[in-house]
Amino acid sequence: MKRLRETSWLIVAVPSLAIVVWLFFLPFIRSAVTSFQTEDGAWTFQNYITAYRLYAGDVLYTIFVSGVSLIAVLIIGILVSGFARIYGGGVVEFLFKIPLFVPFVVVGHAMRVFLAPHGLLNSALAQIGLVNLDNPPSIAFSWVGISVALAWKNMALAILLILGAFESVGDTFLEAARNFGAGWFRQVKDVLLPMSLTSIAVAAVLIFTSMLASFSIPMMIGSGKGAQMLMIDVYYRIVYQHDYGVANALGVVSYITAMGAAVYYLRSVTKG
């Protein structure tokens, strides 16, 4: 009887579950299933062969861009959070929260006009003689531009999560180290970082997945030439070629990559 009453409370979950199942769970299954089908519904591996032939490089490129951005975000995030934890955050902490509230599309557009060959950054650097405007480096329309934009946008989340973890380390653990002469870098390296590894791993997986799945930022500042981020390939395959088979095969590849990151995280957590 009690069991029945408890189960009946689950009724409140029905509407939201229905939406998430209909528009995420089932499409997720559908994309996995149709990636093994031709347009007529026959079973095939052709989509994966085509995807491998055309987009193998793009998959590596996506992992590379996301990985570089993630490492940059983590290094800066740990250093800034460590500084803020030990000496107090103040303005630094506030400034880094701003990107959290700037929409992805806006980040993409802003980076595009900022990093363009004749954008504000190159113009400003040219004023102090660091850049020759007759032959300006194009940061925006290269992997560097995407990396910079992804790192810029994700920095806020990284610092929020890492600083949160650092703040849950009690003052006395730091003071005990300071007592023996550990400077701020050593306090970060010997105490804060090892005591927050789990939370940082969570942050890393969240951020890596979000970078891998980024769509609007590469849409805004990608060049359309050369290697592309994976999500751009999926979008073009569907919108311009109506080829759901290959697009879904690429989608499955992106799921597996995201899952790989998650599994790595779970293993590192259970290990210790």
Binding site: T172, E175, A177, N179, F180, G181, D190, P194, M195
Partner: peptide, 20 residues
């Protein structure tokens, strides 16, 4: 700074680093 004073402190919550 603390390390130049030659003091050593023992804390209420022990403050032993759990990862070491």
């Amino acid at each position: 700074p603390p390390q130049a004073r030659g003091t050593a402190m023992v804390f209420q919550n022990y403050a032993l680093w759990p990862h070491m």
